[in-house]
Simulated scan of single mutants.
Amino acid sequence: MRKLLNTLYVTMPDAYLARDGENVLIKAENEIKFRIPVHNLEGIVCFGFAGASPGLMHLCCERGVTLSFLTEYGKFMGRITGKVSGNILLRKKQYRWTENESITVRLAKRFILAKIINGRAVLHRAVRDHPQTVDTDQLTDIMRNMAIMAKRLDKTDDLNVVRGLEGQAANLYFSGFNQLILNQKDDFFMAGRNRRPPLDRVNALLSFLYTLLTHEVVAALESVGLDPQAGFLHRDRPGRQSLALDVMEELRPHFADRLAVTLINRNQIDPSGFIIKENGAVIMDDKTRKELLIAWQKRKQEEIMHPFLEEKVSLGLVPYIQAMLLARHIRGDLEDYPPFFWK
């Protein structure tokens, strides 16, 4: 079983990563700011323009530690990994499945059905917990229409229709997202989902959390021997982690969206921690990113009842469990893939 607190996030823009024996060093202004043994890590994620020494890169490859580089917006730039591991037979079958239209449609429908159901659950909780504060009529209408799309999804065998329904359901869901924000409404609101770059604080927050979730899912898929780039709903594109994006769909509402709303409503995120650029792009400052990373790591330690295993597990292990279930399905050990449905 993997540790939960095994990812080192580097947010200092002037940081430099170096090696000292079996230790990873974080340097800034020629001073060592942080030191950690490499055997305590499974991943290092650098935001901004942090550099890394060749010695550190060699150590990470040698010890199986993934070194990822992202922009200050959270856009993935590249990653350094060691030798490809995993079951070659499993990967070959995965590749064959991605070329099979009926299989790709079936799995794509599973991912998106869970995304729609989990999104409805987020809206339903707001109606249940805050009926006097939120617009219950609007949210109820959105949930009703999302349920209709879930039924339409079940009846289609066309991948393009699946993608279209996913987009419509996402637009519906985010049209009611402002209702979930109960505090700091003047500073935290969204006019629909936007990214690359995000144009408001809520979208900046969501984009950052989705980036963290991507990293978790990629690591989970690689840990069970699957290729994160060979997806079913998201098609092949150079550098695109298509399978990770597939699996992420079902996890976004519970992992990222709920955490974003919670941080805003509990005043744990300050609007002054967001920088608005001349082009309208909104990014978080270093302090806010650190606060968010701490909240993310704490969130991963929360326990839930896994809907398929019917066992209590830490939330941070859910991506690994879903990756394991998907691998078992592809191998033939499970008749179908059981997506994550939040209860």
Rank of each mutant, 00 (worst) to 15 (best):
L107E: 01
S102L: 14
D129T: 09
S102D: 14
R128K: 12
R106K: 15
A126S: 06
I112C: 05
L107I: 09
T140R: 13
I117R: 11
A114I: 02
A108S: 07
E99F: 10
D141P: 09
G119R: 02
I112W: 01
S102W: 13
V105F: 07
R144K: 13
I112Q: 05
H124G: 15
D135L: 03
N100A: 10
V134M: 03
A114W: 01
V127S: 06
F111Q: 01
H130F: 08
A126Q: 04
D129L: 06
R120P: 01
R144V: 06
H124A: 15
R128A: 11
K109I: 07
T136L: 05
N145T: 09
I116H: 02
D129E: 12
H124E: 15
F111Y: 02
D141I: 12
L113H: 10
K115R: 06
A108F: 01
L123R: 00
P131I: 04
F111N: 00
D137G: 13
S102M: 12
L123P: 00
R110F: 07
V134K: 00
I116C: 02
T104C: 10
N118G: 05
A114M: 05
A108H: 02
Q132T: 14
T140K: 12
R144H: 14
H124Q: 15
V105I: 10
E101G: 13
F111G: 00
L107N: 02
T136S: 10
D129K: 08
L139D: 00
V122E: 03
V127L: 10
G119Y: 05
H130D: 07
R125A: 10
V127T: 09
N100P: 06
R144A: 10
D141S: 14
R125C: 09
R106P: 08
R128Y: 11
N118Y: 06
Q132L: 14
N145P: 08
R110W: 08
V127P: 05
A121L: 12
M143E: 07
N100V: 09
R106V: 13
V105C: 10
E101P: 10
I117K: 10
T133P: 07
R106H: 15
A114T: 01
L139G: 02
I117S: 10
Q138F: 12
L123S: 03
I142A: 03
V134F: 01
K109M: 08
L139M: 06
H130N: 09
A126K: 04
V127C: 13
T136R: 10
I142R: 02
R128E: 14
